Computed example of a mutant assay.
Amino acid sequence: MSEEIFVHYCSPTLAGIKTANLFSCRFEDEKEMRDSVRRLNVALVKKGIRVLPLRYRDGCALIYVYRPSKLSQDLQQADACSLLEKRGYTFGAPERCIIQLMQRLADGEEFPHEIGLFLGYPPEDVSGFIENRAKGYKCVGEWKVYGDADKAKETFAEYQKCTEACIARFAQGNRKAGYILWEK
């Protein structure tokens, strides 16, 4: 996985303004994917960031980049706990919830839309998406919004500005942009 792809898809998480990002990436084989994830974790764990392959199928990995401390805070919100409980999660440590999410992705019966909670989306928007079957939303950006549209639009703009700035730095030759620029 190239650093360019990583910076493109994960800038808000790397910058510390978002809980997590998720993206798909092609790999020749599972060993290559695991080696790439291992190298990223060596560089990023000391900055409070973890990288996990949530699923590997048909040469494509679903890569989850997250800040464990932020995820823990997000999943402790009453609305998030309630939604996860309704969806069959046994809450404990966030890592336990991630393992359950991975199992749901592997089962492949129905996409686990509660994944939005793992990405830092507002619980009311995740719940609204599930309950309304992705219809009747107020606005759309990084996610479909059912709650506070004005706040969500501000957040979308902040994520976009962050991503554009990080991509620009990377394009100017700062090849370590994904690992050094963010000290949070």
Rank of each mutant, 00 (worst) to 15 (best):
E142P: 05
K47V: 06
K184D: 10
K176M: 12
M102R: 15
V42D: 10
K70F: 14
A177M: 13
T19N: 12
G48I: 04
E32I: 06
A168F: 05
L181C: 14
S69T: 05
V51C: 15
Q172K: 15
G16Y: 02
E114H: 03
I115R: 02
G128D: 04
C25V: 11
R26W: 03
K86T: 04
D150F: 00
E4L: 12
P122L: 00
K153H: 05
V126Q: 03
V7M: 11
A106P: 01
E158G: 06
P122E: 00
D29E: 11
A177V: 07
F129E: 08
R38H: 08
E124G: 00
G147H: 01
R26P: 10
V51E: 02
I17N: 11
C139Q: 06
R175A: 06
I5M: 12
K46Y: 03
K153F: 01
E154R: 15
F111W: 05
N174V: 06
R39V: 07
G116L: 01
I167H: 01
S24F: 03
Q73R: 13
D79L: 11
L54E: 10
L40I: 03
R133L: 09
D125L: 00
I5A: 15
C162L: 06
E164Y: 03
S2I: 08
I130Q: 08
G92R: 08
W143G: 04
I115Y: 01
P112S: 09
N21L: 08
A165H: 02
R38F: 10
R67V: 09
A149R: 03
G88Y: 01
Q100L: 09
G59V: 03
E114S: 07
E183V: 07
G120E: 00
F27C: 14
P53V: 04
A171T: 08
L54H: 07
W143C: 08
E30Y: 08
S36G: 14
K47P: 06
P122A: 11
P112N: 06
H113G: 09
E110K: 15
V126H: 01
I63N: 04
K135I: 05
R104F: 01
L119E: 07
D29A: 10
R57A: 13
A106K: 15
R26T: 09
A152M: 06
T13M: 07
A171K: 15
L101Q: 07
R38L: 09
F27P: 13
E109W: 01
E109Y: 03
Y66I: 07
S36Q: 05
A165K: 13
D35K: 12
L22Q: 11
Q77T: 01
R39P: 02
C10P: 04
P112I: 02
Y159K: 10
F156G: 14
A134E: 11
K70E: 12
E109G: 15
M1Q: 12
T163E: 06
A149K: 09
D74K: 04
I17L: 12
W182F: 14
S69K: 12
A157P: 02
E4T: 11
N21K: 06
I130Y: 06
A171N: 13
S82M: 07
L44G: 11
D107A: 13
K86D: 15
D150N: 11
A134H: 07
A43S: 10
